[in-house]
Design a protein around this nucleic acid. Structure first.
Lengths: 200, 200
DNA sequence: GCTGCAATCTTGTCAGTGACAAGTTTTGCA
DNA sequence: TGCAAAACTTGTCACTGACAAGATTGCAGC
């Protein structure tokens, strides 16, 4: 083991400059790769450092520790989600974008909803999360009040639960059977149609 | 640190018998406690061994390794879930039971849907999962075909996604605001009502 | 241009962990 | 009774996260 593949520009290049250039981004990118492939538990700060060709303690300068790195990823995720939700036209479309986000950014998505891995009090994280929450509430407010007793808050919870559950099961390969070859977004549109039959 | 609280009957009792009696169950129980409190990433085989008052390598005899322990927990979880789903009368009630299961067995629930922590090919696991899947499909089949174009398979996915999403968000404390003091099961009943308006 | 300071990265180290190997004690059964 | 398997222990290794202290570099202000 040890230095199995110090192939190309890995870490042993003696002419490597002292300063990486954008180590923070490099670490984040590598972390997203690892998490998407094998989950957050497979993440090793030292492994990321090796990938980026820096010393084992370099990541700590940018993220303090493991929780710091994951918190940064979660915050970035909530920011991306807020942006994409804000561009949606209606609630159903917001749901579709929610599912699309989970598929496009599986690593972010996983980490965002793993609070035990995060520094939950972090300012960046809480503000980003609040932004995403606002975007979701806006989408809910846009839906016209339907049948009797349709509480807006409840409708929001229903939409969120449906989208979140679908996305989660999808990422966990629990819907490979039922969904099969079909486009997941298309399937989700049908599900959302079942939930909000009256509105559109 | 080190031996901060070797208080009562922990591990230093010199009269402790060589055989624990039911170490397997003790380790499982301790693991469930830890996971429910701090998530699977906080799990340490050595920590569990300390809790049970046995040597650091004792757990390996029953579970082989970390993945083995978590796989055993997941299999147990699917078994419990299958049992509880089978007792449900209709699809909505099955959903309620799904949510209740997640709240009653949060550790099981988390591990069951964290495939990257499991030995996915394990026989016990796959059979238990199949049992739970059968129970879910049975509940779906029981629902009368509703409005035009109501695909049974799709209805099943919708119900699963809604229940799974609600349960997941609930466990992650993402619904503390919207649900508030209300009984989560009651709230879920309303959500399920929105999804299957026609059937009851 | 030079100087000093802060940001960035390195080296060194420590305790904790999972996994494995090999030995010891106990149980249960022929 | 004796013996094989089950249950557990001791010892060890590579790896990891965290921390401390030092080296290198970029840069702002003079």
């Amino acid at each position: 083991m040890t230095s199995s593949k110090a192939s190309a520009n890995e870490q042993n290049s003696p002419d490597r400059p002292y300063h990486h250039g954008d180590l923070r981004r490099a670490i984040l990118g590598a972390a997203l790769d690892v998490i998407a492939a094998d989950g957050p538990s497979a993440l090793s700060l030292r492994g990321l450092a090796r990938r980026a060709g820096v010393s084992h303690a370099a990541p700590a300068h940018h993220f303090k520790d493991r929780a710091g790195l994951l918190t940064a990823i979660a915050a970035e995720g909530f920011g991306l989600l807020a942006t994409t939700l804000r561009e949606a036209t209606g609630l159903k479309e917001a749901g579709v974008r929610y599912v699309r986000f989970a598929r496009d950014h599986p690593a972010h998505f996983q980490v965002m909803f793993a609070p035990e891995l995060l520094r939950t009090g972090d300012l960046e994280l809480t503000t980003a999360r609040a932004l995403a929450g606002d975007a979701l509430r806006e989408a809910v407010a846009a839906v016209p009040p339907g049948g009797r007793g349709t509480d807006a808050r409840l409708a929001g919870v229903a939409a969120w639960a449906l989208a979140h559950g679908f996305a989660t099961l999808l990422l966990g390969h629990n819907l490979d059977g039922p969904v099969g070859e079909r486009d997941p977004e298309e399937v989700f549109r049908e599900l959302a149609g079942m939930l909000f039959r009256h509105a559109e």
